[in-house]
Simulated scan of single mutants.
Amino acid sequence: MHRAGKLLAACHREIARRIRPGITTQEIDQFVESYLAMHGATPEQKGYMGYPYATCTSVNDVVCHGMPNTSPLQDGDIVTIDMVVNLDGWLADSAWSYSVGTISSEKQRLLDTTLEALKAGIRQARVGNRIGYISHAIQSLAESKGYSVVRQFIGHGIGTRIHEDPPVPHFGEQNSGIMLLEGMVITIEPMLNIGSPEVRIDPDGWTARTADGSLSAQYEHTVAITRNGPLVLTEQ
Rank of each mutant, 00 (worst) to 15 (best):
I178H: 04
G157A: 10
T187E: 13
E106W: 00
D112L: 04
L180Q: 10
E189I: 06
R126H: 03
A117S: 15
S144L: 04
S135R: 09
V168D: 09
I138D: 02
M191H: 13
S105G: 04
L141A: 05
E143G: 00
N129P: 07
Q124T: 00
S140W: 11
D165Q: 14
N129E: 10
L180D: 12
T113A: 13
I103H: 03
A137H: 08
E106C: 00
L110R: 04
N129A: 08
T113S: 14
R123Q: 15
E106T: 14
G132V: 02
K119E: 15
M184V: 05
G146F: 10
M179Y: 07
I154Q: 10
V127N: 06
M191G: 11
R161D: 09
A125E: 06
G146V: 05
I134S: 03
E173L: 14
S105P: 00
R161F: 04
T102N: 11
R130P: 00
Y133N: 10
K145W: 03
I158A: 01
M191T: 00
H170N: 12
K145V: 00
A120R: 15
L192F: 07
A117T: 06
I188H: 12
G132N: 06
A117E: 01
S135P: 02
E106A: 14
E182R: 07
I178P: 03
G146W: 07
R109F: 04
K107A: 14
I131D: 05
I138Q: 05
L110Y: 09
Q152F: 05
Y133M: 13
V127F: 05
G132R: 03
